[in-house]
């Protein structure tokens, strides 16, 4: 290819420094190498992402009960059904509530953990590992522990034992939706599981803040503590914070395991993915309505992504810090 020769002309190799033979033929072709590296991922993307999306769109216009190869075209009926289904519409509300809970709390908790661990003089590695370890635990396993032993409704559940010391009656944490104690269970489980990971991101960012900034601030008379944190640490963490918030939003959107495992046969506390699972893959096996719901969700995600690009400007490239 011509590009190769151009490159050689523009920046000739330092005179015979490398004894390695120049690669020729197929292995030397940039195009070939591009496809060699990109093709596996592209093929994966097409087979596992684009084909299913296309198939979903196709299914959403059919009466697809107990089959994924339907033949009865019903137009937009699935869409009107999903958009008037109180459970599906409610699930969007559930997701909003969940994100409103979990994103700020995880952000605050992981940042505080990072600040604490970062200031440790000794045993830092130990605490870092201890807080990070829950990340390795599966959501299903954690859900079961939370459900069976921490927040079980019987008198020997840990939470009920503790409130029992203060003379408070047993609470069926996951059974009754008012008061909505199930949010406490879901949020604490997820906090425990994911805070450690974001803590590591924050520690890395904290260690990147130049010490000189703090020294300069000290000379200018800034007090250690809140003042330096507010005016130096937080602004310096802006890029990491934005990334963490976005990652947390995505993770919240993908939430499935703990909702599925903690809540049995409810009509509440179901984010969109759980609701669609019950519609399409659960006992209803309505792939048409399920696909229509998935397409609606996809459209919503595209709108939100475009809006946040406009408002936050994230991903425009001028966010180097």
């Amino acid at each position: 290819m011509s590009t190769t020769t151009k490159l050689d002309l523009a920046s000739p190799a330092p005179a015979k420094a490398s004894p390695a033979k120049p690669r020729r033929g197929l292995w030397g072709s940039r195009t070939f190498n591009f496809w060699l590296f990109a093709a596996p991922f592209l093929i994966g993307l097409i087979v596992f992402i684009y084909v299913p999306i296309g198939w979903s769109i196709y299914l959403s216009f059919f009466d697809a009960r107990f089959t994924v190869t339907p033949d009865k075209f019903i137009g937009l009926e699935n869409y009107t059904y999903m958009l008037t289904d109180p459970k599906f519409v409610g699930s969007l509300g559930t997701f909003t509530v969940f994100a409103a809970f979990i994103v700020p709390t995880t952000w605050a908790l992981s940042l505080s953990l990072a600040l604490l661990v970062n200031r440790l003089k000794f045993m830092r590695a130990f605490f870092r590992s201890v807080f990070f370890l829950p990340t390795a635990c599966s959501y299903v396993a954690a859900s079961l522990i939370w459900k069976m032993s921490l927040f079980s409704g019987v008198r020997f559940g840990l939470a009920n034992t503790v409130i029992g010391w203060f003379g408070i009656d047993n609470i069926a944490w996951l059974i009754s939706p008012n008061p909505p104690w199930y949010w406490l269970v879901i949020v604490t489980a997820r906090l425990w599981l994911q805070s450690g990971f974001y803590m590591i991101l924050f520690i890395a960012a904290l260690q990147n803040i130049p010490e000189e900034l703090y020294e300069a601030a000290a000379i200018d008379g800034a007090k250690r503590g809140w003042q330096t944190f507010r005016h130096i640490t937080l602004p310096q963490l802006r890029a990491t914070s934005t990334a963490v918030v976005l990652l947390l939003l995505i993770a919240a959107y993908q939430a499935f395991d703990e909702f599925f495992n903690l809540l049995d046969k409810t009509t509440w506390g179901r984010p969109p993915l759980v609701e669609l699972y019950y519609t399409a893959l659960g006992t209803e096996q309505d792939y048409g309505a399920g696909s229509a719901g998935a397409v609606i969700l996809t459209v919503l995600i595209i709108i939100v992504t475009l809006l946040q690009g406009k408002i936050l400007g994230f991903g425009r490239g001028d966010e180097s810090k």
Binding site: S176, P177, N178, K265, T266, W268, T283, E284
Partner: peptide, 19 residues
């Protein structure tokens, strides 16, 4: 059928467990 059974379970959830 299962979809109807599921709907009847929702009744229990909506008016007995939820007020």
């Amino acid at each position: 059928t299962q979809a109807m059974i599921q709907a009847s379970w929702d009744v229990m959830a909506n008016c007995v467990r939820k007020s």
